[in-house]
Design a protein around this nucleic acid. Structure first.
Length: 274
DNA sequence: AGGTTGACCTGGACGC
DNA sequence: TGCGTCCAGGTCAACC
């Protein structure tokens, strides 16, 4: 499930592969993935130059002079790049958009599931789904982080997952950050001190930075993530909480517990996380 | 208005 | 081996 580090890895690879290049043609293979804009808005990008590709929250944004194309990856979104002879290879399953550049490079957006996924073709000054996003979780300042979290009256984990408060944190990095901070995910924001929020802010920044450096996390099973070159994420082995319920805590050896917050499976250590 | 819940979707893991 | 069942979860809409 691509969260900020996985989206960052994809956006960086895509920027390197097609940034600055001119589009020869764009194919839309499955129309119902287009959430904003018309199919012809997309195909009309032929001949246009891709200025750059960047990440915002968990989304990948492809920038043209007069348009932006936002790829929401959802749970199972993947992007592949191919160049030269590789473009002759069959398209990966569930490929919905193919962007071919004049030099032969190709970017392919695939997505097996339609959950929380979609493509938005926006005007250059239009934000679309980006308008609802709070600041990126890896660059937000400490004071603003504390103020935005403080404004809520929910469990701390629900606040971290809320993209309008903070963009980019999903289930994996919420569980991992709260484990490292020793804060129980169910604890109300009102019961978390400023000092703990300040510490959590630093930990989230470090966890995301480490995950980006490792190329993200790959979870076995549905929507198995890999970067545009097929490399799986290296951060998975660093997981200490996510997906480890029933296994011993790596700090205290207590059995990790599972609960549910906002409909998401949540794993925590009943001893280390208060 | 903020908080919470459920729908959406389908591949893969797991059990018999 | 093959079938059935369950689980995963980001986003949005709807409701409280």
């Amino acid at each position: 499930m691509p969260e900020l580090p996985e989206a960052q890895t994809i956006a960086s690879a895509l920027d390197k592969a097609i940034g600055g290049k001119t589009v020869q043609g764009i194919r839309l293979l499955r129309r119902d993935f287009l959430k904003t804009g018309a199919p012809r808005d997309l195909t009309a990008l032929a001949g246009q130059r891709i200025q750059r590709v960047f990440r915002r929250g968990k989304s990948v944004v492809i920038v043209f002079a007069a348009r932006r194309v936002v790829l929401q990856l959802g749970m199972s979104g993947r992007v592949y790049v191919a160049a030269g002879a590789a473009t002759a290879e069959p398209l990966p399953p569930h490929t919905h958009i193919v962007i071919a550049c004049t030099d032969g490079a190709e970017a392919r957006y695939a997505n097996a599931r339609r959950i929380a996924s979609g493509v938005h073709v926006l005007a250059a000054d239009e934000l679309g789904p980006l308008a609802r996003m709070g600041p990126d979780a890896n660059t937000i300042g400490r004071a603003e982080f504390i103020a935005r979290i403080r404004a809520r009256r929910t469990p701390i984990k629900a606040a971290l997952l809320n993209q309008s408060i903070l963009a980019g944190v999903g289930n994996i990095y919420a569980d991992e950050s709260l484990f490292r901070a020793g804060i129980r995910p169910t604890r109300a924001v009102t019961a978390v001190s400023d000092a703990d929020l300040a510490r959590l802010h630093g930990i989230i920044g470090r966890v995301l930075a480490e995950a980006i450096a490792a190329g993200g996390s790959t979870i076995k099973g549905s929507g198995k993530y890999a970067d545009p070159h097929g490399e799986v994420g290296g951060f998975t082995t660093a997981h200490r909480a996510y997906g480890r319920y029933g296994q011993p805590c790596q700090k205290c050896h207590a059995k990790l517990r599972r609960t549910e917050i906002g409909g998401r499976t949540t794993t925590y250590c009943p001893h280390c996380q208060k």
